[in-house]
Design a protein around this nucleic acid. Sequence first.
DNA 1: CTATTTCGACAACCACGTTGTCCATCATAG
DNA 2: CTATGATGGACAACGTGGTTGTCGAAATAG
Lengths: 156, 156
Amino acid sequence: MSTEPPGFELPLRLLLGFRVLIDGLHAELARQGHPDVRPVHGFVLQAVGPDGTTAVELGRRLGITKQAAAKHVEALERLGYLQRTADPADARRKVLRLTARGADSLARSARIFDALRAEWADTLGVERLRALEADLRAMTGSTPFRLDVPGWFGGG
Amino acid sequence: MSTEPPGFELPLRLLLGFRVLIDGLHAELARQGHPDVRPVHGFVLQAVGPDGTTAVELGRRLGITKQAAAKHVEALERLGYLQRTADPADARRKVLRLTARGADSLARSARIFDALRAEWADTLGVERLRALEADLRAMTGSTPFRLDVPGWFGGG
DNA sequence: CTATTTCGACAACCACGTTGTCCATCATAG
DNA sequence: CTATGATGGACAACGTGGTTGTCGAAATAG
């Protein structure tokens, strides 16, 4: 008869697990020629996707305002990961597209994430890892991903 | 023969799981008379603990600078959750202590976290939940908890 | 007694989110 | 064709949360 751990450990470990993976990703990403990419950037680039998008739509996908999205776009454009192109069909729209460098960082991220997952599988066993993922899927379901972490965490 | 999910799903689900639990905590905490407490506050109050501490030590425990810690203290003092008392043995030190309200919020948080964990146990089964916690413990080990989420997430 | 360290406070700065406003452009109704 | 409304993007202001830098007061070491 084992005693259950206190309830507060679970959220702590979940956050820690997230950090370990993200830190691992960016350590390796830096080694592979992308030292400037920050955790947020990855999510933004992912949200832009191969087909491109606009600032408004980007904000919707990330769960933040268009203004906040525009700030990320500006930063990523400065770093050379994004490109803003005019839309010939609509003079208001500026279509955001990944540059070659942006696409490269995204491709490397995917490979690194797979490698990190493989490390977890080595330690935990494939079955246990699948169970972990399945359980998290069951508990988080269709909860939308929101990028408003700072404001949410801080209480803005 | 099932195909493995992409590696990026794991960190996403971990973060989502964290959010689900924290959002659940604060929804219930608001119902129980603590609508002003924000996610960060809980961690700060927890770090202060029943014995009290100083701003410098608090910063060390949370993985942030003493200045950042002092800002949280000021906010929590304004909300009536913390109290700064002079240290008779050292005129430089101001000892931070939980007020009755602060201790109450902490006690309620612990109970709510336990209840949320029980919900997870109902859905996943006790064994699966224990395995999930054990696996996260195995992968995060002694990684220290850091409260510098905004800066880290953003890249400060 | 003097030199160093430590604690708390103040100020400035940057990152990231928010709301509010404004203009140019597109879509639609009359 | 024109007036009206909706949409996309830019600009400004603000709040929070982190950082570094500085400084004075108090404790401690020599």
